[in-house]
Design a protein around this nucleic acid. Structure first.
Lengths: 240, 240
DNA sequence: TAGCACCTATAACATCGCTATATGAAGTGA
DNA sequence: TCACTTCATATAGCGATGTTATAGGTGCTA
C-alpha cells in the first residue's frame, strides 16, 4: 500500500510525514495518517522521535536548510545584498510550498522549540549581512538587520499563505523586502560596475571611518584615546 | 466554583475563554476547560458559537478591536503617519499581552477564517493611511501600504512573542516599523519628532570597519593594540 | 546456547472537538 | 387553561487524536 517498502522505519516515517505535511494544504496531519502511510505502528514513531513535534522538527531539519540555502535554489553571487534578496525569496517560497510545516516553525508560540528554528533562519541572513557590513553597506549591526529582515519575511510569508493561492499578490513581498533592506543598508545600491570589495575591505572601511572622523569627533573617546585611535587607523589604512 | 454566577451562559463562556486564553501561556485551551470554568456543558457552547473557533473569534471580536483602536489606547492625533505608528505599537502590545489569542489570529493557517481577522486589522491601518494619502504623504496605494505594514507588524510581534519576555529588544520593532513606514511614505525620512532618521556617517563607517575586521585581522597592530582598538571602535559604533 | 540491547507490535488510555437526543423554560394563540 | 412553538441547556456518547504500558521479536556478543 505504501511506496517506501525498502527504507528503514525511521526514514519511512520522515518521508511519510514530509509527504503528508506538504500535500495536506492547511489541515492538520495526524500521527495515525503518518504511521499508516509509513507502514509502521505508533510506538515506532515515539521510539524514534519522542513525540509528534519531534518528528516534525526532524522533517524540518532534513528539509528546511537544504531547501532555503541548497544548491538548487541558491548560489551566492558575491554581492551580499543581492544574496539577501535571494534568501528572502527562498524563505517565502519555502513557506508557500510547505504551509503546514511553515506554520509549525514560525506561526507557533512554543517558546521552547521555536527560537532554535528561528535562530537557524537568522543565521543564514546574518551570514550574508556580515559580508554586507564588511563592504560598508550596512548602517546597523548585522544582528539587528537580520532580525528585522527575518521578522518582516515571516510576516509577509504568513500573510501570503493565508490568502488563496490565486489571489496572491507578490508585490507585497517585493515592496516589504525592499523596505527593510533599504532601511538597514547605508548606501544606494551598488552599481552594476561596482567592484566587489574583497580583501581590501578593511582598508576601505578604515579610510571611510577616517574621513568621517575628520568632520565629526565622537564623544566616547578622550582626546588622547582619539589620537592613538587615529594613529592606528592610519596604520591600517596604509596597508596594501 | 466559578466567579461568573450572575451572568448569562453566553457571556460566561466568553469570559471563561478569554481568561483561559490569556493565562495559559502557550498551551492549547480545551473546550472542556472552558465549559467547566463557565459552569455550563458542551452543547451550550456549540449552540451559541457553532464551534471552538467561533468562540475564539467571538472573544477576539469582543477584545481585539477595542484593545487596538479603543479609546484607552488610541486617540487620533490628526497626523496620519503618527497614528499609524500608534496602531503599530498597540498591535504589538496586544500580541505580547495575549500571545495565545494572537497566535490563533495571525500565526495560524486556516485560509477560511483568518483573512476576515486580518482584513479587520488591515482596516484600521488602511483608514489611517487613506488620510495620509489624502495629505500627499504616501507614494503607494493605501491598500498596498496597509498590507505591507501589517505584515511586518505581525512578523515582528510573533518574533517578540517567541522570545523570553526578559530578553525582548524593542529596537527590532522600532526599526522595522520605521523601515516599512518610510518605504511607503513620500516625505523625506523623518521620525515621529520630525528629525531625520539614520545613523551618522561616523557610526556607519565604524560598523563597517568592525565587520571587516571580523574576517581579516591586520598585521599592523599587535594583539593588545588590536584589542583596545576594537573596544574603542565598539564604543564609537554604539553612538546614536 | 544464553544474555542483552535494540526495535517494533498489540492493545489500550485519557482527552479532544463535537453532536443526536431529550428536557426544561418561556412565550403565544385559542 | 391548554396545547404548541421556540429557545436554551443537559445527558450521554461518538469518533478521532496523541500517547504509552507491556510484551514480543531480532540480531549481536560472549
Amino acid at each position: 500500500m505504501n511506496s517506501h517498502g525498502q527504507l528503514p522505519p525511521k526514514a519511512r516515517l520522515l518521508q511519510a510525514a514530509a509527504e503528508l505535511l506538504a500535500n495536506s494544504a492547511g489541515k492538520p496531519v495526524s500521527t495515525r495518517q503518518i504511521t499508516e502511510l509509513a507502514g509502521v505502528t505508533a510506538p515506532t514513531l515515539y521510539h524514534h522521535f519522542g513525540d509528534k513535534e519531534g518528528l516534525f522538527n526532524a522533517v524540518i531539519d532534513a528539509g528546511f536548510e537544504e531547501y532555503v540555502a541548497g544548491e538548487h535554489n541558491f548560489t551566492p553571487t558575491g554581492r551580499p545584498l543581492v544574496d539577501v534578496r535571494q534568501i528572502w525569496d527562498n524563505h517565502l517560497k519555502f513557506g508557500l510550498d510547505n504551509p503546514q510545516l511553515y506554520s509549525v516553525m514560525f506561526g507557533n508560540i512554543r517558546p521552547e522549540s521555536r527560537p532554535a528554528r528561528v535562530a537557524e533562519a537568522e543565521g543564514f541572513m546574518e551570514e550574508m549581512l556580515e559580508k554586507a557590513a564588511a563592504a560598508g553597506q550596512l548602517c546597523v549591526s548585522p544582528q539587528e538587520a537580520a532580525r528585522s529582515i527575518l521578522a518582516a519575511n515571516v510576516g509577509v510569508t504568513l500573510m501570503l499563505i493565508a490568502e488563496p493561492a490565486a489571489e496572491r499578490n507578490f508585490d507585497l513581498s517585493d515592496m516589504t523586502r525592499e523596505a527593510v533592506i533599504s532601511a538597514v543598508s547605508s548606501e544606494t545600491e551598488l552599481d552594476a560596475a561596482g567592484a566587489p570589495v574583497g580583501a581590501s575591505s578593511v582598508v576601505v572601511a578604515a579610510i571611510a571611518l577616517n574621513a568621517a572622523l575628520e568632520s565629526s569627533h565622537p564623544e566616547q573617546l578622550s582626546t588622547t584615546e582619539l589620537k592613538m585611535f587615529l594613529e592606528w587607523l592610519d596604520r591600517i589604512a596604509k596597508t596594501s
